[in-house]
Computed example of a mutant assay.
Amino acid sequence: MVMLTYCAGCTGFLNPLTPTAHILDLLFEPEQTLAGRVQGARTPWTYLNRWRLKRFFRKILRKA
């Protein structure tokens, strides 16, 4: 059984204690997530991923 979180920080904190996945992992890779084969990003990748996502949404919102 995999614990599902919406917070990347909680995923990173809880993962050493119990199999944990981020909700977006379930959305984009459901089979791998439920099988426990998805690993969350580690620092500094978590910061880079947030920055890239913000940049992506800013582009989308400017076009709308």
Rank of each mutant, 00 (worst) to 15 (best):
T46P: 02
P16N: 12
R42H: 03
L34D: 00
P19Q: 05
N49V: 11
C10Q: 10
G36A: 10
T43H: 06
P30D: 08
K54Y: 14
I60Y: 01
C7L: 11
M1W: 11
R55Y: 13
G40D: 11
G9M: 13
F28V: 03
K54G: 07
T43S: 08
A35I: 04
I60R: 03
V2G: 02
E29A: 04
A21W: 02
V38Y: 01
G9R: 15
L34T: 01
A64M: 04
P16L: 11
A35S: 13
L53Q: 11
L4S: 03
K63D: 02
R42Y: 02
F13L: 11
G9F: 14
P16C: 12
L48W: 09
T20N: 02
T20M: 09
N15C: 11
L34E: 04
T11S: 02
G12M: 13
A8M: 13
V38K: 02
D25M: 03
L4C: 08
G40Q: 03
G12N: 15
T33Q: 00
L53A: 11
P19A: 11
P16M: 12
M1A: 14
G9S: 12
L26Y: 01
C10K: 12
P30I: 05
L61K: 13
E31C: 05
Y6V: 15
I23F: 00
W45E: 07
E29W: 01
T33F: 01
G12H: 14
L24A: 06
L26H: 00
I60L: 03
I60T: 02
A35W: 04
R62A: 15
A8V: 10
G12L: 14
L34P: 00
T5G: 09
A8T: 12
W45F: 06
R58V: 03
Y6N: 13
A64V: 04
L48F: 08
R55A: 10
R42E: 13
R52N: 09
A21R: 00
A35F: 04
D25T: 08
A21E: 02
R62P: 02
F56I: 01
W45P: 01
L17K: 15
R58W: 09
T11F: 01
A8F: 09
F28C: 08
R62G: 06
L61E: 14
T18H: 11
E31V: 03
